[in-house]
């Protein structure tokens, strides 16, 4: 039960409509680490996260969370097992207040009271904005709220989709700091286009291409391999990927 990996995905195939989006994605996420999914747009990174969570259930393959097979279960059951999800595009509830956005993520009564200090410590802005409706927040504040929302319940694994998307550099720094400090208590599976951010945060990486996992390894090795980075990600990497 207490295996080394909190999440194991074995060659899952996912269809959206008639489109075969994932054609065999496999990955393992070790406990207490940050693992990043890299790949071009349309490679299937977001769909992989959604398939793990059951939002787009895989048609074939196995997803094991904490030693239990979860593929085919409804998404709410999977999430309730202890997976937090930060969707792309800062999908907070804009018509709910900041407080409600956090409150709705409670799975047990009092979750928010217990976690409030931790969350406000991580994102001090949210305390000031607590009573405002979500649509009055700036893009960066919305992204922080989206991450904070995933921290309210006791989650063993966080799936975070593009946290740096559209953020100002100073906010990216703050977001990185927050995610890094999260990995002390939980495990993170990250999708990130910003290679500089990904390379500084993650220990392990997987590269997706055309719905398949094509490369994997330690981030420390990847940053040395500029040719692979360029070929797979098309990123012009400045100064060895650590900027």
């Amino acid at each position: 039960m207490d295996s080394e990996n909190i999440l194991e995905v074995e060659s899952i195939h996912t269809f959206i409509g008639q489109f075969h989006i994932l054609e065999g994605v496999s990955l393992q996420v070790p406990r207490g680490s940050i693992t990043v999914l890299l790949g071009r747009n349309g490679a299937g990174k977001t769909t992989t996260l959604k398939s793990i969570l059951g939002l787009t259930p895989p048609r074939e393959g196995v997803v094991r969370f904490d030693g239990v097979e979860i593929q085919g279960k409804p998404a709410y059951e999977i999430a309730a097992m202890g997976i937090g999800y930060v969707p792309e595009h800062r999908a907070i509830f804009r018509n709910l207040s900041v407080a409600e956005n956090l409150k709705i993520a409670e799975r047990k009564k009092g979750d928010l009271d217990r976690k409030a200090d931790f969350i406000f410590n991580l994102f001090p802005d949210l305390k000031r904005l607590y009573r405002l409706p979500g649509n009055h927040l700036s893009g960066g504040q919305q992204q922080m709220l989206a991450v904070a929302r995933a921290l309210v319940a006791d989650n063993k694994l966080l799936l975070i989709d593009e946290p740096s998307e559209g953020l100002a550099p100073i906010l990216i720094e703050q977001m990185m700091e927050a995610i890094r400090s999260l990995s002390a208590t939980t495990t993170v599976l990250l999708v990130e286009q910003n290679f500089i951010m990904a390379s500084q945060l993650a220990e392990n990486y997987y590269i997706l291409d055309d719905g398949k996992t094509v490369h994997q390894g330690k981030m420390a090795d990847l940053v040395q391999d500029k040719e692979l980075i360029h070929r797979m990600l098309g990123t012009a990497v400045r100064s060895g990927g650590a900027g």
Binding site: P74, Y76, A79, Y85, R94, N95, I104
Partner: peptide
């Protein structure tokens, strides 16, 4: 709480589901 979930669900069902709520 039900009202909160309904208002949230009107905007984005998937994310509500992903929070562990049986939509």
């Amino acid at each position: 709480r039900l009202g909160m979930v309904i208002r949230a669900g009107v905007q984005d069902r998937q994310v509500v589901e992903a929070l562990g709520i049986n939509v």
